[in-house]
Structures are given as structure tokens and as C-alpha cells.
């Protein structure tokens, strides 16, 4: 699984990155996590609110932090 965290460095973006890392580790998933900070690249996903979460090329969340169980759902679907 390919996970991308989109964020220019706002507080929530860093939190999302941490939360995703922890959850992936806890679930023992085979996934790569990439942080994308370049605004030009972020815009290519059509995201207008950071942070954004992209799983296997699909935007699943923008503009807020997910609840842990919500994130687990995204990751295991």
C-alpha cells in the first residue's frame, strides 16, 4: 500500500503524519508512507485544504485529522 500525507508543514499535517505512522505500525501493515510538502505536487491531487491523506493514489481525507478508528477503516478497506 502506498500512503501519502500531503501538508505544507502546518501543525495538523505533522500530527496526521505521526498518527498514520503509528497506526500503520500498530496494524502491522505493509505500507510506505511519504510526506509531500511541495505545494505544486499537493495541488496535483486537487486538494485545497491541508492536511490531505492519499491512499493508493486516491484522496480519502482533507482538511482535518481523522479519528483513529476512521483512519483504521481507510487503511484496511
Amino acid at each position: 500500500m502506498e500512503i501519502k500525507v500531503l501538508g505544507t508543514g502546518c501543525v495538523k499535517c505533522k500530527k496526521l503524519e505521526k498518527l498514520t505512522e503509528n497506526t500503520v505500525n500498530e496494524l502491522g501493515l505493509d505500507a510506505t508512507i511519504e510526506k509531500i510538502e511541495d505545494i505544486y505536487k499537493i495541488m496535483q491531487f486537487g486538494v485545497m485544504r491541508t492536511p490531505g491523506l492519499v491512499i493508493d493514489g486516491k484522496v480519502v481525507l482533507t482538511g482535518r485529522l481523522p479519528k483513529t478508528n476512521e483512519l483504521i477503516e481507510f487503511l484496511t478497506k
Binding site: 505544486y40 495541488m43 496535483q44 491531487f45 486537487g46 484522496v59 481525507l61 482533507t62
Partner: peptide, 9 residues
């Protein structure tokens, strides 16, 4: 800037 994706549908 061009997005190739619609964002969060």
C-alpha cells in the same frame, strides 16, 4: 498548476 485528480470526491 494543474490537478490530475478531482480531490476528495
Amino acid at each position: 498548476v494543474k490537478s490530475n485528480q478531482p480531490g476528495l470526491v
